[in-house]
Simulated assay, not measured.
Amino acid sequence: MQTTIASTASFTGTGLHSGRPARLRVKPASAEYGIWFKRTDIDDGRDNLVPVHWASGVPSPLCTVIRNEAGVEVKTIEHIMAAIVGCGIHNALIELDGPEVPIMDGSAARFVDGLIKAGVRELAAPVRVIEILEPVEFCRGEGDEAAWARLEPSDGFEIDFHISFPDKAIGTQEMRLDMSNGNFVRELSDCRTFCRQADVEAMHKAGLALGGTYENAVVVDDDKVLSPGGLRRADEAVRHKMLDALGDLALAGAPLKARYVGHRAGHAITNELLRKLFDTPGAWRVVTCDAQAARRLPGVGVRRSDLPMSA
């Protein structure tokens, strides 16, 4: 059955790119509501509700941005959305008092912890999933510089990701993970966003990453990890890219029965992939999810004890 959060979960922190304090509350919602953000700071008569939907996505390379028809935006939603999907929540209203979701520690672990504490409640409506019937791919660039993402048919939901960076602290990494049985919480939720030291100054000059610190991002410089404590996992970078992909795919509007494959892909490419999917007749269909199929989706049976010790 569809679910919602059982009680309100509240989070406070700082926006990664804006550097502004941010307060967020995830509240229960009815069946068929979906996931919506509400900008509580907007009081000028504009519509302050923004749907988590691929058509609301604004292609952005550094974070996931959604915008409604009134021009109201919410930025950096990927980590809270990964947590919501990873905890198996289908309906919620997310209130936010500014333009950007707080970055917390750079991962989804604190969001997951708060959502699990708040609990999950079943609703009187069946889950419907988007089943991929044939491969759909979006690619940008050519040759060694190509970045692409693809959705393929699958019996459940899997993510397969490959990255390659010149910095030796990251290098080439790849991982494939079945997202059922709480695997998101155990294997990905504590993996933090990362960047290269060479990019930090450029982002600051562009007015970005103003709230970034060594405490909420993994910063690398060739073979050195500059953040205190080093890496949580040797392949933390590719795991975080998988976390991002899960959050970005939440814009599909329903759970996916699919295998997602990403090669050097980012937020904008995943949004373009969703746009191409829904513009491709015959590549997908919506089906009601039975109990057996539901066990293959993220979030089923998630427990607080699944959170890694590093969280």
Rank of each mutant, 00 (worst) to 15 (best):
M1L: 10
T3M: 06
T3F: 03
S7E: 06
T8Q: 05
T14Y: 00
T14V: 15
G15M: 02
G15F: 00
L24C: 04
A29D: 06
A29R: 09
A29P: 07
S30K: 14
Y33P: 00
R39F: 00
T40Y: 00
G45C: 07
R46L: 09
V58L: 10
P59N: 01
S60C: 15
L62S: 13
L62E: 13
C63M: 14
I66N: 01
R67H: 00
E69H: 11
V72C: 07
V85R: 05
V85K: 04
C87P: 07
G88T: 03
G98A: 02
D105Y: 04
R110T: 02
K117A: 13
A118D: 02
A125T: 03
P126S: 14
P126T: 11
R128W: 08
L133G: 11
E134Y: 03
P135V: 11
R140K: 13
G143F: 10
P153Y: 02
F161M: 15
H162D: 09
K168V: 12
A169D: 09
M179C: 06
S189K: 02
C191A: 12
C195E: 03
Q197H: 13
Q197K: 15
A198N: 07
D199M: 13
A202V: 14
A202K: 15
A202Q: 13
G207S: 11
G207T: 09
L208G: 08
A217L: 08
V218Q: 12
V218L: 15
S227N: 13
D235Y: 12
D235Q: 10
A237I: 07
A237W: 04
V238H: 07
K241T: 09
D244F: 03
D244G: 07
A245I: 08
D248T: 12
L249Q: 10
L251C: 12
P255D: 06
A258H: 00
Y260K: 04
G262W: 01
H267F: 05
T270Q: 10
K276R: 15
K276W: 05
L277C: 09
F278N: 11
T280M: 06
P281Y: 08
G282W: 07
W284L: 11
V286G: 08
V287R: 14
V287D: 03
R295K: 15
L297N: 09
R304I: 08
A311K: 03
